[in-house]
Design a binder for these strands. Sequence first.
DNA 1: ATCTAATAGTTACTTGTGTAACTATATGGA
DNA 2: TCCATATAGTTACACAAGTAACTATTAGAT
Lengths: 179, 179
Amino acid sequence: MLKLSCFESRLAELQRLHPEMPVQAVSMVRFIIFLQRRLEDELAGILAQHDLSHSGWSLLMMIYSAPRQTINPSTASDVLGQSRPHMTRMTDELCARGWVERTQDPNDRRAVEICLTAKGAAAMQEILPPMWRQYEGLSGRFSAEEIDLFSGFLRRWLLDLETATHPDNPPAAPAKDIA
Amino acid sequence: MLKLSCFESRLAELQRLHPEMPVQAVSMVRFIIFLQRRLEDELAGILAQHDLSHSGWSLLMMIYSAPRQTINPSTASDVLGQSRPHMTRMTDELCARGWVERTQDPNDRRAVEICLTAKGAAAMQEILPPMWRQYEGLSGRFSAEEIDLFSGFLRRWLLDLETATHPDNPPAAPAKDIA
DNA sequence: ATCTAATAGTTACTTGTGTAACTATATGGA
DNA sequence: TCCATATAGTTACACAAGTAACTATTAGAT
């Protein structure tokens, strides 16, 4: 029996026991958790070939795509949803590879700037193509229309959660079509 | 600036640098990871009041809703996507609370059965109502129609990933309407 | 100008969870 | 019937990532 089927049997039984259970909410939350585990496991396989963890990869992509290919640890922590000590450790690892370097923020002596090096940029050129293929392979089999809809739902949910925990944030503009 | 907005700026820049990037796939995978972090953080808040980790809670729910409120560790590990040693530790914690107990499988001396105790059932009656409310509160603001669609997408993606990594599994039947 | 509160990043410590290895037991093929 | 292989669960060890505490620095109110 498929694991998901087994899980859904449990869910059905839970609902039988507790008709007041918000079954859709419970299952959606659980589906997200299951998806995350699988997706990270799959990505971990190919990242391991480059001796990268998922966190290191996330940070590297943030740096690579930032203005002047430079970021500071607190911003990275904020956007990636991971702790500042973890950004410190990931930065340590990437520095050890020679892929990034830390410099002093000229305007704020507390702050550090993490910049991509030429070596790091070269590494990214090598890693990105197989990673794009991996991401594509991880996509479910959806039509373009379904992907637009699904992506929009995920984004809205994220925004709802972000806005709920930081009510002072203004509601975000609708998604711009990035493509 | 919203964290998600910041992230999407990075994504836009990545796409400018790499037009071949599968932007929808990359963003969807990343959205799942972000969602999982937030959802688990939110759930952790209320679970902490009951001195439960997310893993312990997951296992407890699996046991609570299983036939005869009994499960074995390997099945739990398989369905929840977590390691057998972790199931052992979670079981240790729940045993220490008096909420579950281990018994010998009468048919297989290797196997352990984890059964909910009366005390555990009582604890569940107490924990479930606030948890239902928490799950409901975590749901994004979607219409019933959108929730059906969204839930279906999540489920299909999970099935695609499960089938891709275990090709011998038959494609699952479409979701039965649980309600 | 002063001082309190907040922030940036690191270090030390803690918690969560994986893998490897182990023992005991079951399965299934020869 | 025997034996190799696989499985169940635990223990030991390793790794990932969080929190608390710290120092240095900045921001902003008075």
